[in-house]
Design a protein around this nucleic acid. Structure first.
Length: 531
DNA sequence: TTTAGGG
DNA sequence: CCCTAAA
């Protein structure tokens, strides 16, 4: 197996220039009818020009080296990225914070996730490469294909990730039973008191994030191709990570009243990819693509950190926030975070020992990947009050506004690697399911399990669950049965062969004893019923 | 839904 | 942990 650690992945865009309306919040820039589910896997139309309503214009060649556009109208030029991984924003000091961050977010979104060309181009004009003025309404795909890379045939199963995270599901066989008894079903996570819920961070976020209360994001998630319930559809959590600008960059003020910010490349979160050595390069590319889509495909939000504080008021001008001040800008940072952060803060499990460090470097299935958070996200502490906002991922990751017990993933906070350990794997054509986080049994759990089995015997896992793990929502009776199986196995092998947190020999002995006893017992029962 | 077992 | 046949 090949394991690729692409920690240093960066999105150094090639040269890219945005022209946005001076006073517009540039978020509109990217709201040009783009479809959220246009993903990397869907293959952006490279090499396109387009101009959206807001007058922003891109010429994209994400796959290639160049990505630039020329400006027109009275926009403010923003150069983002280059071969030197440079991102420059030339902003008017009175520009709103939101316009700056949104500009970048939309750039990244468009270029990274969706490609420079929106899939649905109702509101987009395609202009000839040679003549920017001669724009032609894009009314059909054929118009685009003239410029773009040939689109794949309808069979995009292998490539398309339909609302990647949205399509993910847990225990599909149980999904329909939302009314099941809590302990049997993950439906439990819908209904029970959240505070009592344990850490299925992504799942929880998925389920809650697009609850009816979750506002529409207005632009990037409209193509809801998923057939799953709405409430599971706005999970960005898959990308329960964020990225931050790897360098806050030099900041310099230009002569006029414009503020120029220079940001080095945006880093993407650490990516782990596992793929068979026999896989083709193409499939490797696809896998990376899918991973990136998972991370970025759902839309990004840019957060701004000024001297360690999150700048939340998008309506403040750069002057007001102090961004235009040279000295303050020394400490200016940008953070990428998933767009939907309306999550219900998960709560730490009642027993910290239950969380005893599963490593995030677990092996996932072939051709899968998972991401871990960018450590950079942990660097700053934000003290600002929340202004009525639901904590964002960045908040959580930076420990802002959330007590430790509400960590996004209830793992020891020191364990940065424990975050986001959920790999994806393809279930069918365009569905991705998320594997549950691996959470090794702690000794105390083993103890409880052994005790229950001693009492109830093997084969009554539901009762075992009820008896000893009733409140451990993340342990199903199947889990307990599986654990017992491994315990028996563990007890039988030599201590040298055992892995993970060592289980006291005494417990293992009891396992063997109980296993032997109940095996006989079962045999006897069977014999009884047989005769 | 639960159990049982293979993957 | 996942998947699923079978009960």
């Amino acid at each position: 197996m090949l394991e690729i650690d692409s920690t240093s992945n960066t999105y150094g865009q090639s040269e890219m220039i945005i022209f946005a309306e001076k006073w517009a919040t540039v978020s509109s820039t990217s709201n040009c009818g783009c479809s959220a589910s246009s993903t990397l896997g869907d293959s952006p139309c490279f090499g396109e020009h387009f101009e959206d309503k807001a007058g922003c214009m891109f010429e994209g060649k994400l796959g290639a080296e160049s990505y630039k556009s020329k400006g027109k109208k009275d926009g403010i030029p923003c150069v983002i990225g280059s071969s030197e991984d440079l991102i420059k924003l030339d902003m008017e000091p009175h520009a709103q914070v939101g316009s700056e961050s949104d500009a970048k977010a939309s750039l990244l979104r468009d270029c990274i996730s969706h490609g420079p060309f929106p899939k649905h181009c109702d509101h987009v004009k395609v202009v000839s490469r040679d003549d920017d003025e001669n724009s032609v309404e894009c009314t059909q795909a054929s118009t685009i294909s003239k410029f773009s890379r040939p689109r794949p045939p309808p069979d995009i199963g292998e490539r398309k990730i339909k609302k990647l995270s949205a399509s993910r599901q847990w225990r599909p066989q149980n999904l329909k039973g939302a009314k099941m008894k809590p302990m049997y079903c993950n439906g439990t996570y819908y209904h029970k008191d959240e505070r009592s819920q344990n850490i299925y961070p992504f799942k929880k976020r998925k389920f809650y994030s697009q609850s009816p209360l979750c506002p529409s994001d207005g632009g990037f998630h409209h193509e809801d191709t998923s057939s799953f319930p709405k409430k599971r559809n706005c999970d960005n959590c898959s990308a329960a990570i964020g990225a931050s600008s790897s360098v806050t960059g030099q900041v310099h003020e230009c002569k006029g009243c414009n503020v120029k910010l220079s940001i080095k490349s945006f880093k993407v979160p650490e990516l782990f990819i596992e793929i068979p050595a026999t896989a083709t390069v193409g499939s490797l590319k696809r896998t990376v693509m899918e991973a990136m889509t998972a991370v970025l495909g759902n839309g990004l939000h840019v957060g701004i950190l000024l001297q360690g504080k999150m700048v939340r008021d998008d309506n403040k001008t750069l002057l007001q926030t102090g961004i235009s001040q040279d000295q303050k800008r020394q400490n200016l940072g940008f953070i990428l975070e998933p767009r939907h952060t309306q999550i219900t803060p998960p709560v730490c499990t009642e027993d910290p020992s239950l969380l005893s460090g599963g490593t995030s470097h677990g092996i996932s299935r072939s051709g899968t990947y998972y991401v871990s958070p960018d450590p950079l996200l942990n660097l700053s502490s934000c003290v600002e009050s929340n202004l009525n906002k639901v904590p964002s991922l960045a908040d959580i990751l930076t420990g802002n506004n959330l007590p430790e017990t509400q960590a996004l993933v209830a793992v020891p906070s020191s364990s940065t690697e424990a975050l986001a350990v959920v790999p994806f794997h393809r279930k069918s054509h365009s569905e991705y399911v998320q594997r549950r986080i691996r959470r090794p049994f702690s000794v105390s759990e083993v103890e409880a399990l052994v005790q229950a089995v001693e009492k109830l015997g093997t084969g009554r896992w539901r009762d075992v669950k009820l008896r000893a793990f009733d409140s451990a929502n993340h342990r199903t009776y199947v889990d307990l049965k599986d654990k017992w199986k491994t315990l028996v196995h563990t007890a039988r092998i030599s201590p040298q062969q055992r892995r993970g947190e060592p289980v006291p020999q005494e417990l293992l002995d009891r396992v063997l004893a109980a296993h032997a006893f109940w095996s006989k017992h079962q045999t006897r029962q069977q014999l009884k019923t047989a005769f």
